[in-house]
Design a protein around this nucleic acid. Structure first.
Lengths: 361, 361
DNA sequence: AGAACGACTCGAATCGATTCGATCCCTCGT
DNA sequence: ACGAGGGATCGAATCGATTCGAGTCGTTCT
């Protein structure tokens, strides 16, 4: 005999009908009702109609996704680990495009994207590990984030990262950051520049800004930034610069002000910014200081995005952000199907703009 | 006797240990093991240690979120219905700020945000209704979207909309769109303008662009756009304009080109754009056409966001996007707790910039 | 010393559906 | 006319955890 406590715990809407209730009302078994809803088995038209009618009368809204998830072992949700809170992360067009590609691709298997801002440990936020996700994608995160995913790994949940240090358990989508940075540095060298400085992305989770020191670099965990530094060093060994906290034009502006606000003789004649947004900030700073681009200063970016409100064309390399996201999505699909996706690495394309010119005499 | 089929169905990682396995290994019952993990009951230190040790040995990653969800009747996931695919929706700073406020607020109850792009019906995408969400927030969607939520309503899942038509079952967060638009129109009227035109947001899901006709207006479903039109009409009855497809500067530019590329005598002397992004596009178009702002043309926006790369200050009204999101988040929390949230409506603030001036003689 | 109490632990029910194998019955073939 | 075949339906197990009430055992109070 059913207990039927009536007003039981504080569980959601008390009286919501269940599949069993619908089945009872339609005079069939729960299994048949299930079949009628899912269409997975042979059900007579008559029976199906009766079940549907009963459902309508009871106001049954279809099988509970929670129960389905448990039974199927899948929630249909992919977690997207983003580096900061939404308002901050989503100011980066590269991130947006990547997520867009990702979302489109996983919608092929009917999955949706759960946003999981990567918070500093102990900040009282949701633990990623507790989310009912079928897989996780790290997009634009630093290597530390992998640590917070220990739980996922133990649960055999597929993890895909977009840019990041190689890891046996994690499928990585990469782009030739080092090669791209090298291309840009070579371009600048060919123009005759010798006093060059970098404006880098955040090197670690802390997002501290300041001069690029060996120490800070050694503690860096953001692969993207480190690889782009390496590419520049391939051409300009030992080149220094300034760490901007984030990929935003105001951060680029601050960094450039620090680098340029020195006696003209010490001033770099070329600045290699690690993102187009940073480069836009550098241009703004130069304008403020009355430094002409490209006559007095050459500036390059990275990413190849369209920067709103920037009328001049930037010398940069373009990277396929959306394709990276899509590739991650396909990798997820493969992994969930039990297959092993092929590793993917994308190339970049050099694009000369009007912000670079010959080194001043 | 347990069946223990070994390699059963294709369910995820076959051999993943369960709480029961851990309990068995630790020599306790499943209930005790559960208590040990959740900390919800009195468990001796010794027992807890044994359970944790067993878990470590077996590589148990903690309770399965899927099973927890079913038992608790909560998934810890809030669905965010956004008007278009990610790459498009997230180019709107207002949307981003709103989601940011929302995400922060719901993280108080440990919930995360599931992105659900509102797709045209029948486009083969995931049905919102099948997602395991505890509640849904409509952000920047049109009224049609409510239709796709029938299933949710029947399931008694709380729905909150940010801007939208009043609905008994749906908690609405609103802002004084009409009043804001009226403020701007009044400002323009005080400056003596008589030939005025609107540049509106999309009126419906179709996002068609073109002249603002009575017919198109009658079929409109986007409350925000309609209310702002109404506000302008409070001051300029019958004012016409152009429908821009989306809140982006390129759409604003196209619209403005259509409105301004006429004999100077017919040309409007003021354009009321329904968003700052659109206004930025209007400014760009004016510059292309050699029309001076504000001498020949006054331009106002709406939203009060900082538009990247727009150096001049726009006359606009500011609306609290982030607060709207936060209010939606708090409403969700209240609703999930079984309480009834207070209705919220926000005010806007007029902000005069340098893009409006006296009507030309 | 006996009772009462408290700290722990356990068994069993439950969340809501899916699915495999078995059963039942009707029809078709020869 | 009888067995085979097959469509429709049902029973029962299962997914993996949580939770309530009940039971055990040792300690403390009077």
């Amino acid at each position: 005999m059913k207990r039927d406590k009536g007003a039981s715990a504080g569980n959601r809407a008390e009286g919501r009908p269940t599949l069993a209730a619908v089945a009872a009302r339609a005079g069939v078994s729960a299994s048949t009702a299930s079949l009628a809803f899912s269409g997975h088995g042979p059900v007579s038209d008559d029976t199906r109609a009766r079940v549907l009618a009963a459902a309508a009368e009871l106001g049954y809204g279809g099988p509970d996704p929670l129960a389905q998830s448990l039974r199927r072992g899948r929630s249909g949700i992919i977690g997207a680990l983003i580096p900061a809170r939404i308002g901050v992360s989503f100011r980066d067009p590269v991130l947006i495009q990547t997520l867009d590609g990702l979302a489109e691709e996983i919608s092929a298997i009917g999955a949706g994207l759960l946003l999981l801002p990567d918070h500093d440990p102990g900040s009282g936020y949701v633990n990623v590990t507790d989310a009912p996700v079928d897989a996780v994608v790290l997009v634009g995160c630093n290597a530390d984030a992998l640590g917070t995913l220990e739980g996922m790994r133990r649960r055999n949940i597929p993890i895909v990262q977009i840019e990041g240090p190689p890891d046996a358990d994690v499928h990585t989508i990469s782009v030739d950051n080092r090669g791209g940075a090298r291309l840009l540095a070579e371009h600048v060298r060919e123009l005759g520049h010798t006093r060059v400085a970098l404006v880098t992305l955040a090197l670690g989770r802390d997002r501290r800004v300041g001069p690029l020191t060996a120490e800070r670099e050694a503690g860096g965990t953001v692969t993207t930034a480190l690889e782009r530094i390496a590419g520049a060093r391939d051409v300009y060994p030992g080149v220094g610069g300034w760490i901007a906290g984030a990929s935003r034009s105001d951060a680029g502006r601050e960094a450039a002000l620090a680098l340029l606000d020195v006696p003209a003789a010490d001033r770099p004649t070329a600045i290699l910014a690690q993102s187009d947004l940073l480069a836009a900030g550098v241009l703004a700073a130069a304008e403020e200081l009355g430094i002409r681009v490209p006559e007095d200063l050459s500036v390059v970016g990275f990413d190849g995005i369209r920067v709103d409100g920037l009328e001049r064309s930037l010398t940069t390399v373009w990277q396929p952000s959306q394709d990276k996201g899509a590739a991650a999505g396909r990798a997820i699909v493969e992994l969930l199907a039990g297959r092993t996706p092929d590793p993917v690495s994308f190339d970049v394309r050099f694009r000369r703009g009007s912000t670079t010119g010959p080194a001043p005499a």
